[in-house]
Design a protein around this nucleic acid. Sequence first.
RNA 1: CCGCCCUUAGCUCAGACUGGUAGAGCAGCCGACUGUAGAUCGGCUUGCCCCCCGUUCAAAUCGGGGAGGGCGGACCA
Length: 327
Amino acid sequence: MDAYERITRNAAEVVTEEEVEALAEDPDGKRAYVGYEPSGVLHIGHLLTANKLIDLQEAGFEVVVLLADVHAYLNDKGTFEGIRETAERMKEQFLAYGLDEEATEFRYGSEFENDEDYVLDLHELERETSISRAERAMSEIKSGDTVRVSQAVYPLMQALDIEYLDVDLAIGGMEQRKVHMLARDVLPKAGHDAPTCLHTPLIADLTSGEGKMSSSSGVSISMEDSTEEIAEKVNDAFCPPSADPEGDLENPVLQIFEYHVFPRFEDVVVERPDEYGGDLRYGSYDALEADLDSGELHPADAKGALADYLDDLIAPGRERLRELREA
RNA sequence: CCGCCCUUAGCUCAGACUGGUAGAGCAGCCGACUGUAGAUCGGCUUGCCCCCCGUUCAAAUCGGGGAGGGCGGACCA
C-alpha cells in the first residue's frame, strides 16, 4: 500500500485530492490533527478518526490530538475544571486504543487559544464571517437548541487552530465538513493558507441503519461497554443480508467491519457452527461483504464475529478506564 | 427597558375557555414469526402537567408572583 492509498483509505472525502497527493509525496514530518471535545468515554465514532490517525502515523505523519477544552466550554459542556479531568481520561483511552505515544502530540486548546495573538486573529475572522455562515457551520455539532454567540465563535476557533497548530492536514468526521469548508474560505481572508481536509465516513445508526450513529441519542458502542453489552448491542443491530439495503438505509454491521475491524486485523475468522458449514476466514472486507450479500455468510454469524473483534479492540481502553476510576 | 407567545411522557403535541384522580402519535420494552436485526402481528411501561403562593370540598385547568425559551418594539442623538 503506497502512502497516498494509506492516507486516503476509508475516507469519505478528501479536499482536495491534489493537495493530499502533494502531501503523500513526502509524508515524513507532515502534521495532521483531529480536535475532540473531551468526552470521558471514547465511543465508536471517536475510534473511526483514531483509526485514520493510526494510518497517518504509519505513513510518516506527526499526529496532533487537540483536546478541545475551550470548545467544550463554549459548547456548554461544563466547567473548565471538569472538562480538564474528562480530557485526561480521554487521552489515556486513546493511548490504550493504540495511538503511538511517541508520535502523538496531545495539546489542550487552552494552552494557546487564550494568547493575545490568537484572540486578535480570531477577531479578524469574526469580522470576515456572517452570523448565518457560522451558525450553518455549527448545525451538526452544537448542543442544545438555542444558538448562542459562543457557538458562532466555535467554528472560527477550529479554523484558527489549524493555523496555530501548524497543521498540514485537518481530519474530522463528515459532520465537520461545513466547519472545514468555512475554514478554507475564511483563513485566506486573514492571510493564512486554506487547510487540506480529510473526512471519515459516518456510521449509520446501529439499530435502524438510518442516518448516522449518535452517542447522544440511540445506541452507541463505547469503551465502557462490557463484553456482554457489546454482544447484545451488536446482536440488536439492523443487519439485512445485504450490502446495500433498500432506500437510504445502510448496513451498520458491515460498516463496522469495514471501518473498524479490517483496518486493525490482517484477517478475520467467523466462527460458524458445523451445521451451517463451519468457520470462515476473510483476508479483506470486500470478501466478507460479498459473502454476506450473496447469503453465504449469515448475518447472525457475522454479528458473532463482529462482537468478538470489537471486544478485542475495546478491551485495552476499557481496562485503562477501569484503572483510572479506581485510582 | 416595554409588549406578546410558549413551557404537559424520551420526542411532537392535545387537554385549559366551561376546575372533578392526565391523553394521542412516535419512540422504548416484552412476546410471536424469522438461524440476526428489520418489517408484520399481539401486549406493556412511562409523568415534580416549569417553580412558588393563593382561591376552592377539589387546580394541569382559575388568580398573583417568579424562572427558562421564542418573537417583536423602543433606542439608533
